[in-house]
């Protein structure tokens, strides 16, 4: 906490708001991951933390470092870009693997093939 006092109070309040909201999204996603009943429901929960939760925390970090250092610190954008590109890919791969396994085992909860009914 070296030079945080340089940050004007209204912006500090904004940083706090983004940080708390982001952490809350991540926590809500984790609660969903634990509480939801079926696998395909649970997959949805962590996307809260990896979309808006991640975004809000990175925004607060960008604001914090840019103001504390007095020049724009933007490398958090890299993490945001990287995560928005990769989380859909990894989720899709997991879900496809789960679907393949469930179909292989003949699980009645998943549709055997894509059809229009």
């Amino acid at each position: 906490m070296n030079s945080a006092d340089v940050i004007p109070l209204p912006i500090a309040v904004l940083i706090c708001g983004c940080l708390l909201a982001g952490a809350f999204f991540a926590l809500a996603g984790a609660v969903g991951l634990v509480r939801l009943k079926s696998f395909y429901q649970r997959v949805h929960a962590p996307t809260l933390g990896s979309s808006l939760g991640m975004g809000l925390i990175l925004v607060s970090s960008i604001l914090y470092f840019s103001l504390a250092r007095g020049h724009p610190v933007l490398h958090e954008i890299l993490i945001a870009v990287f995560l928005t590109l990769t989380t859909p890919i990894s989720l899709m791969l997991i879900v496809r693997a789960a679907l393949a396994r469930d179909r292989f085992e003949g699980n009645p909860d998943v549709p055997p093939v894509e059809t229009l009914d």
Binding site: L48, S51, L85, T87, I89, E114
Partner: peptide, 17 residues
């Protein structure tokens, strides 16, 4: 489209024939 559907919480792209 796959990225849009999966990145939106609440929907996930499962498979495409």
């Amino acid at each position: 489209l796959a990225c849009i559907i999966t990145a939106t919480p609440g929907t996930i792209w499962m498979s495409y024939r």
